[in-house]
Design a binder for these strands. Sequence first.
DNA 1: AATACGGGGCC
DNA 2: GGCCCAGTATT
Length: 361
Amino acid sequence: MSGISKKIFFTEQIISYSYLVDRDLPWKKDNNPYFIWISEIILQQTRVQQGIPYFKRFVERFPSLNILAEASEDEVIKLWQGLGYYSRARNLHATAKEIKANYSSQFPEDFSELIKLKGIGNYTAAAISSFAFNKPYAVVDGNVYRVLSRYFALEENYHSSKGKSFYQNLAQTLIDHNNPGRYNQAIMDFGALVCKPQSPLCHECSIKIHCKAYARKAIANYPLTKTKTKKKQRFFNYFVIEDDHNQLILRRRNKEDIWKSLFDFPGLESSIDSILTHQEIKRFVLEEFNIKQFSSMVSSKEYKQTLSHQIIQSKFFHLKIQQHFEQQTPYVLTNTKKLINFAFPKTIDCYLRDNYINLYM
DNA sequence: AATACGGGGCC
DNA sequence: GGCCCAGTATT
């Protein structure tokens, strides 16, 4: 079979599969680009099952682009809490404002305009183009890399930029121009349900007759894996300082670091797993907050969190103070009853659940 | 061209 | 404990 006819067969089979693997997902209800866009941002590097409840909450609170554009960034981040990659939420909000201000609240239809928007890259621009406007731009996500690499037994590594453009070009030659939206949806559903990462369902796959990796009995060798990077270890010491009016000091994370625009507590980071001395704690708290003394201190267990590039171990020191705090930048004061209104990283969320369970749930 | 950016599910 | 998920922005 020639390369060309093999490609045609592939495209036809993917379209045939579109009826078998069609998943009933809440963002497939209509072709409104606003809902398509929200779903695609949520699903970036995120499993469908994890994204569904976030999508539902998000569109319930922000049913239209204008409503999203008029919301506060803090509220948008709060709805994103726990989903990770928080720049997605900031860019989502910024883009809503951008479209409201400069596109008369109408989603642009051209790929070249879409890709200019914050948070919209190659994949998302193709997804919106094809799903909302039925334009022939091939989506290339993790599913597509996997399916193509197996079917054609590709030796290119899609984690490199050369590999990415190779796959992008190949995918574009395979798209069904008569029904680009359906084709794009189908290849991803096929990848998610049949040509899965682990233990794919080759026995019930009807395109395996031309699948090169299957013929070689080498499905497990495709796609080529990423060379793994070392994770940086970090050690956080957090001070949960509570005054005599049940107020806590929070810190807004605004540096170029993880968890930007979320909240945590004032703290000291060390590069090694050292035990903070009583003196060091006292010096930090006294100098940073002009506190005379604390009446009690309770140390927490250690919380460990693994990110894609970092391993973070956090300890918390709960300090009670017999005085009344005043607001002092860059910190934020909150009553313990209002903790629920702030967006916290997972580690902080876990600590609060363990220690402020009655107030924070 | 490589790296940073979260969190979770599955083996 | 490692892999990878409906990727994008930055360095």
